[in-house]
């Protein structure tokens, strides 16, 4: 009986008796959800364009963040005294590097593999991952770096909102992250769903050969999509780097996208957003109210359980396309 009480009654009693903590949890879940959506978006973009699950998305986050910090340090050494100018020059330089990376991936990895089975392209992204790890460690070393959040004028501090007889602490950096992620997600959603490039992108995903036959430039599409994924990786790297530090450990954060993708579907931008929010909110609530029953630390697997339960009812994910192949 006690166990049943702890599962079905006590968590709701806690929510009722400390509504400010519940509000705080919902806020934290929302912020995490938006950030998970941002990571998931990087995967979705490339999957939509090439039908490939990009295993390298996690290391692209690390690579982008390290490039930003590394370029900033280089600017300082070169005598750029004003930290703001240095930081924004470094940001611009990183965007250029991510573009060059996109061109390099298209030329050296994807182009030779046109019309190859998806599994070959998937394996190629494994190769890309290990190349970027080695190259990144060679160029930047393995030491963790501090994200240049102050130099980029990302806000510090927090806003205390007094509600329900308590307080909800909203970190300004989290608010900024949520806003930037939302804007980025919305812009990409519009760009890829309402423009010609978006339609071309879907054609490429369906069939390389058919897309080529109607005059769609596969090379251009791939460069655009990998560049967009690179920008998403940069935004992700800045936001997560500001919450912790910039190191190769950030690569693990990309794993948070997997349950989001299972839930939202690999091909849906709205799915990535809604999936991210569901996972973010449910893992925070689950960890806080039911975690102690299981020894805490459950959020690393709870997200997968939630995603798998959804899969039982919608195998294609919340917004994924139902694929019917005629035989």
């Amino acid at each position: 009986m006690h166990l049943l009480y702890q599962i079905f009654v006590d968590p709701f009693v806690q929510m009722g008796t400390a509504p400010d903590l519940l509000a705080q949890t919902l806020w934290e879940g929302l912020v995490s959800g938006v950030l998970y959506a941002l990571i998931a978006l990087g995967f979705v973009l490339i999957f939509k364009a090439s039908g490939v699950f990009n295993f390298a998305q996690g290391i692209m986050v690390v690579f982008a963040a390290l490039t930003l910090v590394g370029l900033y340090q280089a600017m300082t050494r070169l005598g750029v005294v004003n930290p703001t100018i240095g930081a924004y020059l470094a940001l611009a330089g990183t965007v250029v590097v991510m573009f060059l990376l996109a061109v390099g991936v298209e030329r050296l990895v994807l182009r030779p593999l046109v019309n190859q089975p998806d599994i070959v392209l998937f394996m190629a992204t494994f190769g890309l991952t290990y190349f970027l790890i080695g190259f990144g460690e060679y160029v930047f070393g393995g030491d963790p770096q501090v994200m240049i959040a102050d130099q980029l004028h990302l806000p510090r501090g927090r806003i205390d909102v007094h509600v329900f007889g308590g307080v909800v602490q909203m970190q300004k950096i989290d608010i900024t992250a949520a806003v930037i992620a939302s804007v980025l997600v919305a812009a990409l959603a519009v760009f890829f769903q309402k423009t010609r490039i978006g339609r071309a992108l879907r054609a490429v995903a369906d069939s390389h050969r058919a897309a080529l036959s109607v005059g769609i430039s596969l090379e251009t599409i791939w460069v655009i999509v990998w560049f967009a994924a690179g920008i998403v990786a940069l935004a992700t790297g800045i936001m997560w780097g500001a919450r912790s530090d910039v190191s190769f450990a950030l690569e693990i954060i990309a794993l948070k996208a997997l349950p989001v993708l299972i839930l939202g579907g690999l091909t849906s931008i709205p799915g990535a957003i809604v999936g991210g929010l569901i996972i973010g909110l449910s893992e925070k609530i689950g960890e806080l109210y039911w975690g102690p029953l299981l020894g805490s630390g459950i959020e690393s697997w709870l997200a997968y359980v939630i995603a798998l339960v959804f899969l039982l009812f919608r195998p294609q994910g919340l917004f994924g396309e139902r694929i019917i192949e005629r035989v």
Binding site: E28, V31, S32, W240, R243, I253, G291, E299, S300
Partner: peptide
């Protein structure tokens, strides 16, 4: 896996 994600 949650080293950098300690919000909860």
């Amino acid at each position: 896996k949650e080293m950098q994600n300690q919000g909860s």
